[in-house]
Write a protein that binds this DNA or RNA. Sequence first.
DNA 1: GATGAATGAGAATTCATTCAT
DNA 2: AATGAATGAATTCTCATTCAT
Lengths: 202, 202, 202, 202
Amino acid sequence: MAGAEQKSGGRRIGAETSATRARIVEATVELIRDEGYAAASTRRVAARAGLKPSLVHYYFPTTDDLLLEVCRQGAADSDAMIAQALASEDPVRALWGFFVDTSRTAMSLEFMALANHRPAVREKMAEHSVVMRRRQVEIIEQLFGDRLKVLEGFDPAGLAVMLAGIGRCIVMEENLGVTAGHAQARATVESWLDRLEAKTLA
Amino acid sequence: MAGAEQKSGGRRIGAETSATRARIVEATVELIRDEGYAAASTRRVAARAGLKPSLVHYYFPTTDDLLLEVCRQGAADSDAMIAQALASEDPVRALWGFFVDTSRTAMSLEFMALANHRPAVREKMAEHSVVMRRRQVEIIEQLFGDRLKVLEGFDPAGLAVMLAGIGRCIVMEENLGVTAGHAQARATVESWLDRLEAKTLA
Amino acid sequence: MAGAEQKSGGRRIGAETSATRARIVEATVELIRDEGYAAASTRRVAARAGLKPSLVHYYFPTTDDLLLEVCRQGAADSDAMIAQALASEDPVRALWGFFVDTSRTAMSLEFMALANHRPAVREKMAEHSVVMRRRQVEIIEQLFGDRLKVLEGFDPAGLAVMLAGIGRCIVMEENLGVTAGHAQARATVESWLDRLEAKTLA
Amino acid sequence: MAGAEQKSGGRRIGAETSATRARIVEATVELIRDEGYAAASTRRVAARAGLKPSLVHYYFPTTDDLLLEVCRQGAADSDAMIAQALASEDPVRALWGFFVDTSRTAMSLEFMALANHRPAVREKMAEHSVVMRRRQVEIIEQLFGDRLKVLEGFDPAGLAVMLAGIGRCIVMEENLGVTAGHAQARATVESWLDRLEAKTLA
DNA sequence: GATGAATGAGAATTCATTCAT
DNA sequence: AATGAATGAATTCTCATTCAT
């Protein structure tokens, strides 16, 4: 129960602990982050990692395998961030910070786009999304309880969708260099959190 | 002679009035909508349009040209939808309908992703985004005036970002088959609109 | 016998006197001069001339037709230069100047290269070369007579080959940015001409 | 272990020792020699070598890579020919033979033309030309010393330019089927060499 | 005299993947 | 654990040419 990263006896080619393997995944993440998912080809990943293209296929027989691994790690990262948020001094802000985290959200958006023509990725993303949402809802319920309904008329799952949407929108647009309304939207969200938090602490 | 379609005698290669040209753009839109932007290759577009690949290049010398045209038409469509919303019986609902319009939003998200590795698209999208946001803000101001601030503590631009974000999130996730929290988020947004509208009519 | 440019009743599409036709030829010459013969495609020629690609084909049904016309004009230019040389104050220097004329020689070299895979050009170039050489020999004989043999042991045709070769070599290498030995080779040639000229005038 | 072919453990993609790689280069040389540089396309090279087009790109990722390799080998061949000339029984004739060697010179001319629109080739050719010229000058100085100046008024570098130019001109024109003056030019060059050689031996 | 539309061929690359070693 | 060789399919783009108007 100590997290989702443990893996018992899974038999893949290339030990999961391999430094080379890690380097490949890392290079892929960088490429996707910097140039979009279309840049994540065997050759370019290998070049970025300073390895031979064949070696990428040695560890990840198909491109889907590689992409799925990156996806899995991204989910694990999100998981860790949420856990950290919950354990932090100011869990409410930390949760909102999670939703407007630039690099994680940018990656997530790339995988959403990828899902469109990679059934395997689509499946994984759907699965992750459900799990993530559930976890977010738990946290929101734990933090605010029914003050949420009483004070703002919000529902925990609804708030999760709202925060996710507003956060992603801000990140996506910042990425384009567009910022109109961002500060005001952030202010509104923060005022919700202020009110909820005040009552929480009271 | 009213409307935005007026044609200004400009003569490009492949007149804008060409039926073939229109067919190409239409096929591209369908492909992107159904399979993601990566499916918009010369061959596939031609196949979908029932034309020879070379003909696509005759009308759109580079892929950027084609993509930009699709982008431009998408923006025009959005424009028209917003105008229609404003002129409708229930402009408030129509505006929200605009933000959760599945096909338009899905396209928009594809182009956001595309912007990551197509500088030309990025530029166009940034430009469009700014214009769209401005128009949305105008409408919101016109519909609600300062009731917005008084009743909900919202700012027009901030609300535009919030609606856009929540709408996109719902569309994106529906696309993945994920719907948790959607109904509740929608309900919250609708309750805002209800309250604002009630006062508007009063 | 008043030059090679007269043309009686030749029936081509597009009157030879057309300004448009001239513009096409001119654009082609510029392109070949600046970017090599491979740049002389219908589209690029049209673009350079500010015309539609179809128009190029209207005047020159095939690429060979266009190339041949450029070739013909180049030969006419060379012809004119030689005639001018002969009529000048210092015909000997003018002749040598002809051989080291940069732009004309560069074009000539492009057509030599083109001749390799354009039989029509090959034929024309061969024909021109023979005519040119003959004319050069005439001039050399006329200028130096048998002083050539007596003084330097040169033969008129041999000298023509030597001057052409040395001139082309210098132009070709200058084009590459290589100049080693050029000044000295020029000096040697000039010393020959000096000696021959001195005796000529004496 | 003597000779210029020594291999310095360097590992590139497609080891330099590969027979396939050699076949590709050889096919390219033949194509350029027979049909001009424009014939050196991936497809045609592959067809000539009896290989699949993709394999050409496996060994030479870009066309420049392939062309540069051919260029490099051509320079190495020239180098070897000069070395051989120097070591031969009659180095003076061998040197002149080098300048009128048909196949080598024809290739060299193709690359000169190619230099016009391939910056990479241009650079390599310029570099080679300088090195070659320097080597030729050394040989000329070594063979004739200052008899050159005294007897004919020639300068070593100038003579190198003259021989190169006359040789190239003859090869180029022969290629076109034009031969007027060639024998006479050759005779003149040979008479220079005769005189210089006689004094050399004396 | 001029032009828009259409087409088939071929260019250079890039890619994922397989296989033998 | 790693890698070189090979391949077939797909990518974007350019080209010469034909044809109907």
